[in-house]
Computed example of a mutant assay.
Amino acid sequence: MESTRITFPAGSLQGDGEVLIIDREIAVVIGDATPFHPVDHTWPDQPGDVGTLSVGDAQVVVTEAVMAAVSDDGVLAVGADIPVKRGADGWTWLVAHRIEGELPPEISVGSVVTLEVDAEHRAALSRGHTACHLASLALDAVLADLWRKEIAMDPLGNPDFEGKANQSSRIHADGSVDEYRLGKSLRKAGFDSEGFAGSVDERETRINALLAEWVAAGGESRIEVDGPNISDRRTWRCELPGGEVGFLCGGTHVRSLTEFAAITVSLDLSDPQLLVMTTTAVPA
C-alpha cells in the first residue's frame, strides 16, 4: 500500500479515489487519493475538511478528515491513536474520512468513489490559517525590540517569538487563537516580559497597522509540495512588501491576500504568564 495522494495543496475540492480500507467499527473510509485536508494528529491546529463521499446516487457525509497510518505489520491507527509522528519509518501514511451513518453497498473496498469537500468550510479555514501565520509574523516584528539576547530568526528576519513561546494554536473559520507562554524560560532567553506588559495596547495597534499594510498589498499566497503524497513536505509561501516568506506547513491557505478585507488581532495578557492572541479575518 502506498501513501494517500492528495490534491488539496493546489486548492482542489473534488476528486475520485479507489477505496482501499473500510473500518466499520470506527466508521472510516480510506482511499488511494483525496482532495480532503486531514487534521494533523501531532499538531492539530487546523480542523479537517468536511464534505461527501459518493458512488452514483449513493452518498455519505464525511464529518471530518483525519490522519491515519498502517504499520508494516498491518495495524491501522487513526487520528489521536497513531503512536508515532508523521513520517516515522515502518508506517504508511494515509487520509481517513470519518463518515456519518451506514455505508451503502455501492461503497466498498475496490469501488471508485467521488470525494467532494465543502467549499465554504475549506475557504473559511484557509483564511483562518493564512491570517494566523501573518499575525504571528506581525507579532514577531512588533516584539523584536524586546529581546536582549540573540535567538533564531523568523522568515522576515525578526527574532522568532512565535517559535520560542507558542504553546498552542487553534484555527477556526476566519480566525485563530494562539497561546504563548511568558515564563521563566522565555525571560532567560532574553525576552523583556515586563517591558511587553507595559506596552501591550500600543503593540497591538502596531500589529494591526502592519497587517493592514500587508492585506492592502494583496500578495500571492501558495503551497509548494515536495511530492504528491500526504507524507511529503509542504511549504506555505506568501509575498509581502518586505519580501517573500515561507515555512513548513501542512494546512490549506488562500491564493492571494486580496481574499481579505481585513485581518486584526487582539492581545490578552490577563495572566502575566500567558499571552493569548485572537486573530480575526474579514473576507473580501
Rank of each mutant, 00 (worst) to 15 (best):
T205V: 12
A10N: 10
V225T: 07
I6T: 09
D32E: 01
G183C: 02
R127L: 05
G218Q: 03
A141F: 13
Q46L: 09
N229V: 15
F8M: 05
T252K: 04
E259Q: 07
D201I: 05
K85V: 14
V109I: 14
S193T: 14
L76V: 13
A131K: 05
G31V: 12
E213Y: 04
T42H: 08
L186A: 01
V60R: 02
D45R: 14
V245D: 06
P159F: 13
L274D: 04
G175V: 08
K149G: 06
S266A: 15
G48T: 01
G51D: 12
P35F: 13
I171H: 04
S270E: 10
A65L: 06
F196Q: 01
I30H: 12
T252Y: 03
R233L: 13
M277H: 07
D89T: 15
S221K: 01
G74P: 10
T4H: 06
D178I: 01
N229M: 14
S136L: 07
V61T: 15
H129N: 00
H37R: 00
T34K: 02
V29N: 08
S193C: 15
S256C: 08
L20E: 14
G90M: 02
E120S: 13
N166V: 11
L248V: 15
G190A: 13
T279E: 05
E18R: 15
S176N: 09
